[in-house]
């Protein structure tokens, strides 16, 4: 007997592989931040989301913090410039991966949506699909980004570094500054009524990363040969940011998902029953498109014994 393929051996862990990796990176980042607050760890990794230093040497600076600081102080400091350049270079290649893989607030929101799903299904016994609210107007967060830069220019003050809920969360977790937690709690409560309103419509840091990472090479790639054959909408139902992966991209013949709210989290790629999506730097090659793919849906549909969900009611 041949060994079963890896995805069968790994079971759930393979099925949720991207989720697992994302949780690991975000938690490791938080742990490193916490490590920095200890006496022994401060030499290896210290700082918070607005600026860190690794091994007492390599600076990483939140690009928005650096921009605000440069404009407000009317001077450019080399260390902050290097730190911001490193992160911008990373975003140019990887896209806005900070949002999906690192951001502690994103991790909190992810865990909150898991709790929300659990409460919905197990406590209230609602079995229907929970529709993600439509994409809020993208304009808002670019307006906010502009507001902050203009504010920094005139008031000589990096406003976002004080009120940023990301910073407030890290300060509460690492430095024990509890006053800012009220803002974070308010956002988490908001999550229960309008998921990801902060990330999708408000976060200026996210919008800066969205602008910089627009042409990032790492993307959710779409298999042109398989796209749209099984319009199950699992991808866009599972997308934490509510990106219309299927109706907006797969069914439109796009070769990759280019939505500014796509954080390259990979959640859609792991749920796709046909392997139409992959998170990769490279497009699907001809060899990949037909390699060992599950075709049970095809047989089932051909035999007419299951009804596949159709595109009715698809938003956008």
């Amino acid at each position: 007997m041949t060994r079963p393929p890896r995805r069968l051996r790994m079971g759930l862990l393979w099925y949720r592989r991207w989720t697992a990796w994302r949780r690991i990176t975000a938690i490791v980042f938080l742990l490193l931040l916490w490590l920095g607050s200890t006496d022994a760890g401060a030499a290896y990794f210290r700082g918070s989301t607005s600026g860190t230093r690794i091994f007492d040497l390599i600076p990483l600076t939140d690009p928005l913090a650096a921009i605000e600081s440069f404009i407000a102080a009317r001077s450019i400091d080399t260390t902050a410039l290097i730190g911001a350049a490193l992160l911008i270079a990373a975003a140019l290649v990887l896209g806005p991966v900070f949002c999906g893989w690192v951001c502690p607030l994103g991790l909190l929101f992810d865990l909150n949506s898991a709790l929300r799903r659990f409460v919905r299904r197990r406590v209230f016994g609602i079995r229907t699909i929970d529709p993600m609210p439509a994409q809020p107007p993208q304009v808002i967060k670019y307006v906010l980004l502009g507001c902050l830069v203009g504010f920094a220019a005139v008031a000589a003050f990096p406003l976002f570094q004080i009120i940023s809920p990301i910073n407030l969360l890290v300060r509460a977790a690492v430095f024990g500054s509890a006053a800012g937690l009220a803002v974070v709690v308010a956002l988490v409560v908001l999550e229960w009524f309008y998921p990801r309103l902060w990330c999708r419509a408000l976060c200026p840091l996210g919008s800066l990363y969205a602008i910089v990472g627009r042409f990032g090479l790492l993307r959710v790639q779409i298999d042109p040969a398989e796209a749209g054959k099984v319009p199950c909408q699992k991808c866009q139902r599972t997308c934490p940011m509510g990106v219309p992966v299927m109706t907006g991209y797969t069914m439109q013949g796009a070769s990759s998902v280019t939505h500014p709210n796509c954080t390259r989290c990979g959640e859609c790629t792991q749920v796709c029953p046909r392997g139409v999506l992959k998170l990769s730097f490279f497009r699907f090659s001809a060899r990949e498109t037909s390699a060992g793919r599950c075709d049970r849906c095809d047989h089932a549909r051909a035999a007419g014994d299951i009804s596949l969900p159709l595109m009715s009611g698809a938003s956008k």
Partner: peptide, 10 residues
């Protein structure tokens, strides 16, 4: 100072 500090806590 308030203008330049990015509040990173390093």
């Amino acid at each position: 100072f308030l203008a330049a500090c990015i509040r990173c806590g390093q």
